[in-house]
Amino acid sequence: MEQRLVELQQEALEGIKKATDLKELNDIRVSYLGKKGPITEVLKGMGKLSAEERPKMGALANEVRDVIAQAIEEKQSILEEEAVAKKLASETIDVTLPGRQVKTGNHHPLTRIIEEIEDLFIGMGYTIAEGPEVESDYYNFEALNLPKGHPARDMQDSFYITEELLLRTHTSPMQARTMEKQNGKGPVKIICPGKVYRRDNDDATHSHQFMQIEGLVVDENIQMSDLKGTLDVFAKKMFGEDREIRLRPSFFPFTEPSVEMDISCKICSGKGCNVCKGTGWIEVLGAGMVHPNVLEMAGYDSKKYTGFAFGIGSERIAMLKYGIDDIRHYYTNDVRFLKQFSIHE
């Protein structure tokens, strides 16, 4: 009997080893371990055994069952893994084929510049003021120390609608408008982005419509050194920490003193090239200390308050930053142009 059990075990293990699929394995399970299987059959003959031998044989039979069952289990997991692998292999795809496009647009380069500048100044405690694009002669000129007949009005040839109304020639009217709202009390810290208009024929460097960003700070003890420091932060954040700024005296009727800000040329590192016309410096914006007449007209005591203002040309900043060579691109809106500004450095 013992002999038979050992033989059965051997037979079964060989069968399991040879099995190639789960069905075959299951057949083996049923035939060896089932109720009608050969082991059960062998055990039926136990009655003939002595009382001492009986438990010994029983234990052996159980051992044989366990060995077979374990072998089946092991084989089964191997076969299952193989089956899964086979299935997955059949599901292989070409991972190099293009993915399903997620189509996105992006903002206009001018918006990009404006929002970047807005965020920079918001970080320094400024709010964003916005005003009308059609302005009164008063806010566009008179409140900015440009009375009627002032020769400096020629600097900004304008589109008039009536004698008293025109398309604003700069974002500076927001200086007066904002200050008036404050009833003569500081502090004022604003940035005013917006469209402005001048009588220019459109060409590579001129546009009858363009965008400006005005900045204004009015408080007690505002100094020209504060303007210089603020513009330095602006220049370094917009163009790189390695840039230097230089202030040159200039003239705007609404500031005194007035300055132009230049930044050092990145292309030639100040040695002189085509972009900076050999000077090593690139003109970026106009600025100055708010003219006392402008403060007074807007209800501020110019003995107590001082301020600075600056005007940034968005087109110019984008041109310098991205090397755009024609101002008309901004308004033609060629998608091939717009698309290029989807990348964020």
Binding site: N106, H107, H108, T111, K195, Y197, H208, L338
Partner: peptide
């Protein structure tokens, strides 16, 4: 895509 066109 955002476009910016002329007001006039």
């Amino acid at each position: 895509y955002q476009a910016v066109t002329y007001s006039l």
